[in-house]
C-alpha cells in the first residue's frame, strides 16, 4: 500500500473522519466497560453525568480544565513550530514554585499576584530555554532533554518540600506553607468554586490566537514549523523564532502550576499535577494545535477525567479508563487527520 494526496478533500471528509475517530473512541470505552464487567451504556452515562450532571460537577470539570488549557496551549504553541516540548510537567512545577516563593509573605497586595505570575512565566520559560539552546546550538534532541528534566524537576520539588520550603506546621507532610490570602486567586463568582485561573486561561488562549494569526511572530512560527529550510532560505531567523516560541511555551506551562497553587490548592505539594503536562499533549493534538480549540478540548478531557472518577466510584470500572480513552483518542485522531489529506492506494 502507499499513500496518495487528495487534491481537494471534501468537507464531509474533513469533518466526518475526525468525528469517526471520536466515535471509535466511544466504541473502545464501551468495550473496556464490557471487559470490566459493567454495562457499557450505564458507564458512558455515568461518565457524562459525573462530568456535567450538576452545577458542582460542571465547576469541578472547569477547575480541572484550567491547568489543561495552559499546558495544552504550551504544547500547541511549541508543536506548531515543530518544537517538541514534552517538558510542560517540569515547567508547570517551576511556576508553582514561584507562586509559593513570592506568595507566602515576600510580597503583599496588590503586587503579589501580577509579580508572581510574571515570575512563574519567567521560570517556566527559563526551564525550556536550556533544551532549546541545546537544540539550536548543538543539535541535541529536545524531546529527550525535556522529558528528562521532568524527572529532575520532580526530585527538586521533593527536595524543596522536605527542606527549605517545608511547612513547619505541616505535621511532617512534605508540603509548602500556605499562601497568604492576598496571593490567592479569588473566585470568579462568590460562592461558586471556580477561581480566576479559568478566566485567565481563556484570556491566554485568545492572546495566543492573536499572536498566531495577527503578528509577525505567529507567521514565523508557522513558517518554521512547516519547513525550517524554506524559512531559513527566506531569511527568517529560525533559531531566534524557536527561542521565542520556547519562551512563550514554557511561560504558558508555568501558569498552569501557578494557577493551581494560587487558585485551587493554596500550597505546593509533590502531587500537585497528576500529569497535566503530559495530558496537555493530548489536549493540544485533539485541538489540532488551534489555541481556541484547546479551550474546548481541555474541557472535554477534564470532563472525561472528572466523569471517570465519579463513574469509577459507582460502577467499579477502574478510573484509569480515562487515560486509556484519551490515549486512544489521540492515536485515532492523528490517523483521522492524516486520512483527510491522503488516501490509501494499493501498490
Amino acid at each position: 500500500m502507499r499513500l496518495e494526496a487528495i487534491p481537494n478533500p471534501s468537507a464531509a471528509r474533513k469533518i466526518g473522519l475526525p468525528a469517526l475517530a471520536l466515535l471509535a473512541t466511544l466504541g473502545v470505552a464501551m468495550l473496556l466497560a464490557l471487559i470490566a464487567g459493567a454495562n457499557p451504556f450505564a458507564v458512558l452515562g455515568q461518565i457524562a453525568r459525573g462530568a456535567l450532571g450538576s452545577k458542582l460537577a460542571i465547576l469541578e470539570t472547569l477547575n480541572r480544565a484550567t491547568p489543561l488549557i495552559f499546558t495544552g496551549l504550551a504544547v500547541a504553541v511549541a508543536f506548531r513550530a515543530k518544537l517538541w516540548n514534552i517538558g510542560a510537567e517540569a515547567q508547570l512545577y517551576a511556576g508553582a514554585i514561584m507562586a509559593v516563593v513570592l506568595g507566602t509573605g515576600a510580597l503583599g497586595s496588590p503586587l503579589v499576584l501580577p509579580v508572581s505570575a510574571g515570575a512563574a512565566m519567567l521560570a517556566g520559560a527559563a526551564l525550556l530555554l536550556g533544551p532549546v539552546l541545546l537544540k539550536t546550538r548543538l543539535g541535541v534532541d529536545e524531546v529527550v532533554t525535556t522529558l528528562l528534566l521532568n524527572f529532575i524537576m520532580l526530585l527538586f520539588v521533593s527536595y524543596l518540600l522536605e527542606g527549605p520550603m517545608k511547612d513547619p506546621m505541616g505535621m511532617g507532610w512534605p508540603k509548602s506553607p500556605a499562601l497568604i490570602p492576598e496571593a490567592r486567586l479569588p473566585r470568579i463568582v462568590e460562592g461558586l468554586r471556580l477561581h480566576w485561573g479559568f478566566a485567565l486561561a481563556i484570556i491566554a488562549a485568545v492572546a495566543v490566537w492573536v499572536i498566531q494569526t495577527r503578528t509577525t511572530l505567529g507567521f514565523e512560527i508557522r513558517a518554521v514549523g512547516q519547513n525550517p529550510e524554506a524559512a531559513r532560505f527566506a531569511g527568517m531567523p529560525v533559531n531566534a523564532v524557536l527561542v521565542k516560541t520556547a519562551l512563550l511555551s514554557g511561560g504558558l506551562a508555568a501558569l498552569a502550576g501557578w494557577s493551581e497553587v494560587a487558585g485551587l490548592k493554596g500550597h505546593l505539594s509533590s502531587d500537585l499535577s497528576p500529569g497535566f503536562g503530559y495530558t496537555g499533549i493530548i489536549v493540544a493534538m485533539l485541538a489540532l494545535l488551534h489555541p481556541l480549540g484547546v479551550v474546548v478540548t481541555a474541557i472535554f478531557v477534564a470532563g472525561i477525567f472528572v466523569g471517570s472518577d465519579a463513574m469509577s466510584r459507582a460502577a467499579g470500572v477502574p478510573t484509569y479508563i480515562a487515560d486509556m480513552l484519551l490515549a486512544t483518542a489521540l492515536l485515532f485522531m492523528v490517523l483521522a487527520i492524516l486520512l483527510t489529506r491522503v488516501r490509501v492506494v494499493r501498490g
Binding site: M1, L3, Y278, I282, A327, T328, L330, L331, V334, L338
Partner: peptide, 19 residues
C-alpha cells in the same frame, strides 16, 4: 505505512501502554 509523526505516535503509545 501511514508515516505519522513518530514523536506524537510514540508518546501516544507510551500513554496508552502505561494506562
Amino acid at each position: 505505512p501511514f508515516g505519522l509523526s513518530q514523536h506524537v505516535v510514540g508518546l501516544g503509545v507510551t500513554l496508552l501502554a502505561t494506562a
